[in-house]
């Protein structure tokens, strides 16, 4: 009987160790992703260093599903730059081009007007009611780099949540069943 008990014990101990290593490695994956994201936030100075283009208002330059890399420095904002801005009362930030800039002499505050390359008119219709200009605090960052198509992954996952759950489930199964 003794050897059966020993075997059971050894199996039990192995499983606990395995579960622990799996938990640790899963934690490592999650935390390293978080570290990369936070590091990007520090380097770029933007609260969301990477954005996915959701609308076709900047076509043919940026299409739906493209990825933009943002940078937020203290450099003044100038006409022609592509900025990402938040309008009061709107949840989703907008990526459009600056077409007018008026910068104050004494305070350095700026009035900015934007427009989507593919839109007919400027963005005053998108701004809050009665708002004529964007100010510095509306701007989340300016686009500096571009990567096509990659953003489709997030678009598909937000629009078809079932795919997200299947993916998470499959990955979870893989982690649990894998032995290395």
């Amino acid at each position: 009987m003794g050897w059966i008990g020993e075997t059971v014990d050894s199996i039990k101990s192995i499983q606990i160790r395995q579960v622990l290593t799996q938990a640790v490695s899963l934690g490592m994956i999650v935390t390293s992703a978080l570290i990369i994201w936070k590091a990007l936030m520090c380097i770029t100075g933007s609260e969301s260093p990477v954005v996915v283009v959701l609308s076709g208002s900047m076509e043919p330059g940026f299409k739906r599903g493209d990825i933009l890399f943002l940078h937020m420095s203290n450099d003044p904002i100038r006409a022609g730059e592509i900025v990402v801005f938040n309008v009061d009362g709107r949840e989703i930030p907008i990526v459009h081009r600056v077409i007018k800039v008026h910068e104050r002499q004494d305070t350095g505050e700026v009035d900015i007007l934007t427009k989507g390359d593919n839109n007919y008119g400027d963005d005053r219709l998108l701004y809050a009611h009665g708002q004529l200009w964007l100010q510095r605090h509306h701007i989340m960052g300016r686009a500096v780099g571009f990567l096509p198509y990659v953003g489709w992954v997030t678009i598909i996952m937000t629009e078809k949540p079932i795919i997200k759950y299947i993916l998470i489930g499959a990955l979870g199964l893989l982690v649990i069943t894998s032995k290395d």
């Binding site: 022609g80 910068e103 002499q105």
Partner: peptide, 25 residues
């Protein structure tokens, strides 16, 4: 992929250190 080109009028006024007004793109 493409080049976006625009023409801006730029000038200084007593209250604004810089005015950039896009005229054509």
């Amino acid at each position: 992929k493409q080049v976006f080109v625009f023409l801006a009028a730029e000038y200084e006024t007593p209250q604004n250190a810089l005015n950039q007004v896009s005229l054509w793109d």
